[in-house]
Write a protein that binds this DNA or RNA. Sequence first.
DNA 1: CAACTAGTATAACGGTCGTTCTAGTAGAAC
DNA 2: GTTCTACTAGAACGACCGTTATACTAGTTG
Lengths: 193, 193
Amino acid sequence: MVHTKQPSTSARERLLAAAGELFYARGINATGIDAVVERAGVALATLYKHFGGKDRLVAAYLEERDDRWRADWEAAIAAATTRQQRVLAIFDALQRWWGTEGRYRGCAQVDAAVEITDADHPAMAAIIRHKTHLRQRLTELAREADAAEPEQAAADIVVIYEGTITALLLQTVPDPLQRARRLTTGLLPTDSR
Amino acid sequence: MVHTKQPSTSARERLLAAAGELFYARGINATGIDAVVERAGVALATLYKHFGGKDRLVAAYLEERDDRWRADWEAAIAAATTRQQRVLAIFDALQRWWGTEGRYRGCAQVDAAVEITDADHPAMAAIIRHKTHLRQRLTELAREADAAEPEQAAADIVVIYEGTITALLLQTVPDPLQRARRLTTGLLPTDSR
DNA sequence: CAACTAGTATAACGGTCGTTCTAGTAGAAC
DNA sequence: GTTCTACTAGAACGACCGTTATACTAGTTG
């Protein structure tokens, strides 16, 4: 049989897309390399050519997701009208992801941190990178919103943010996003507009 | 019921102890049944005799941990001096667990919810049971502390609590426990004692 | 004594895991 | 026209997975 059709997207992109769907939906450890390859419609050797192994594919999956998250978050920040709402925009972005995912499974980086126990795993760097940026960007936003202690406010918001994600995952609490916005608002000076 | 309590203490208990250590430290999916059996110093058939399979062993592991958590939490509540501090006692108990675990891996029930995707898994009931009790008990404590809306306060505290656990796991934030106590205190009326 | 119980040790089952290897094809570049 | 690149299909690997089965031991109990 002749297989002349050239794929519209590159093999690497389709591998990342397949890995993104399967790792997030079924978990990293429960998802075999064969399943990723099959969903991507790609040869097994191509995966090893591009990523060298499962561990590095997992790391790439987390970084790709981080990139997308940052873009969506920044979009939500840009759409906010007040400096206070720019801080709250993280929950707008979270709400969007929560509603968009086929079945919400929480933060991919946190999930990975739960599944991976080896500290030397290449995915660890991606997890730390994601959470470090989260805190730094929130600190900037809190400072712009005239928070008395921007670093402290940002750290508090991180706690609230992580709790919101878990609450959305477990469905243990009604309206966690609304709660998070209210709790966060209490940490910021009232908007001068 | 003819099946009265036999003095079969060691085998079952040692299986639960081994499962508790391995599942929590290495994750559920990454821990094989053989490793549990080996650590427990027990025959493989004994595991199947008592639990019928891995899924039910996982569920038993989560329930055993929930029992221990409740006991420690209640002890922390009993040790608190004011009604406000009785609400905050959940963070005393959390701090104790965080400091006691060899290596803290977050809430076992949340970790299990991340690893398990099948909604029919017997462990799901244990997870829901744990989180439901959490909210109900917090509601009682908030009511006793004269919170204006005990259910709402308890739900807020759950969000803060879950966020604290994730923050402790990822070490992404300084002093999450202190933060949680301060945020929670803001949700309660000042103590009249 | 005989039956039952709880436990032991060991082997085998079909299946999946991540990884490596061989061999081949289509198209672009030199 | 040959080489190079990106990809394909498929097989094989040793290891481990959860589960089941067989056969045996020791202590209790009727």
